[in-house]
Design a protein around this nucleic acid. Structure first.
Lengths: 206, 206
DNA sequence: GGTATTATCTTGACACTGCAAAGTTACACG
DNA sequence: CGTGTAACTTTGCAGTGTCAAGATAATACC
């Protein structure tokens, strides 16, 4: 009978250390970035010994792998949220998806950098690989919806250019904004900024 | 009279340690990436003591700052090379510049990540700031050439969208390719790949 | 030419890091 | 009640970046 969260007494067995560590790790990531990320810092946050994560995640990269995977889940969710509020028109759906991508990166710059600009997560891990792949698949199906709409449902060549164009546009905006470049865009009020991002996204697929 | 490069005997004073360290650091970066970068590894490569860099660069981030600055110089140069071989037509010039941007990133993925995906270089440093700014300025003037060509020479608003679109498109392609994503594009032969990149770039500015 | 100064590089020490091995506690199950 | 196992802690180690102090070579000055 684990006491969920006994106010004062911390039992030897934490009960839910795994997710507590992930939360602490995300906080550490936010404050120090991936380059200042310290496993010992995470364990201090969680109030456990520095070797506690080993049993759940193996090593530090294992913890970061789990974090990245959770990041992809949230990225997908954010994109879906933006799509749901947008017209069902395939082109508007892609624009909304791109805006969601950029918004996610702006709100979680360190996490985004972990997911796309770091070698530390193990992208061979099945969990991470699957979730990242499914994010990519959603993009492909969105793009193919537009292509099919035009009456040319070929999956090769031409469509892959559209996929690359759409992804690159969203990713470029996201990465530059998360890095604090492109401040002419980044400092704009959210609604105006998102409209401009949608405009730029709309150019990617003619 | 420093003996340039006495084959066997290494003089106590290296003679040109500063640039030797930068070369060693770039090699270290290529092999281990920014996240595995070790200052002591650099000094071992250069055959000097672990504290040798201090006098020239201060700390490790100082060395990385110098490396990033040199990276921007090369990036600018690569873009110019591609532009010189392209038609003088403003739109073609932008496309060529974008291709140069992506080629640089593909050929120097670790350096590119240092320049755009790392907090370690000191972007407050005047040298780095100026060279990075001048790279940005070249883009702005290229875009304004197109805009002026269309007879609407306004520097605000609309043009800044074009700047953001062009930069984001090139940067997105560059970052995704350097990270090994987008392999449908990345594995193509260079000439075909570059043509597709140019196509995608051309969409960014209508 | 000889001496003092200065720039350059080395040595040694420190706190911090991630990881592995061994020890300790709590819990499940007979 | 006793035993085994999972969860966590303690201890130790090699590696890291930075700082302070020392050693050496090049240069400036007389």
């Amino acid at each position: 009978m684990k006491d969920e969260k006994s106010p004062a007494g911390r039992s030897y067995h934490h009960g839910d250390l795994s997710s507590a560590l992930m939360d602490a790790a995300e906080e550490e990531l936010k404050q120090h970035g991936i380059e200042g990320f310290s496993l010992r810092g995470v364990t201090k946050r969680a109030g456990v010994s520095h070797a506690a994560p080993a049993h759940h995640f193996g090593d530090a990269n294992g913890l970061l792998t789990a974090l990245a995977a959770r990041g992809f889940e949230r990225l997908i969710q954010t994109q879906r949220d933006f799509r749901r509020r947008a017209p069902s028109n395939p082109r508007k759906q892609i624009e909304a998806s791109g805006v969601g991508y950029v918004v996610f990166a702006s709100e979680n710059p360190a996490l985004f950098r972990l997911m796309f600009g770091s070698d530390r997560p193990d992208f061979g891990s099945v969990h991470l690989q699957r979730i990242a792949e499914s994010a990519f698949d959603e993009l492909v199906s969105l793009v193919s919806a537009v292509t099919n709409d035009r009456g040319s449902p070929k999956r090769d060549g031409a469509m892959m250019i559209d996929v690359a164009a759409a992804w690159a546009t969203a990713h470029g905006l996201a990465d530059l904004l998360a890095a604090g470049r492109l401040n002419t865009l980044g400092t704009l009020p959210a609604n105006i900024r998102n409209r401009r991002i949608a405009t730029i996204m709309s150019r990617a697929i003619p």
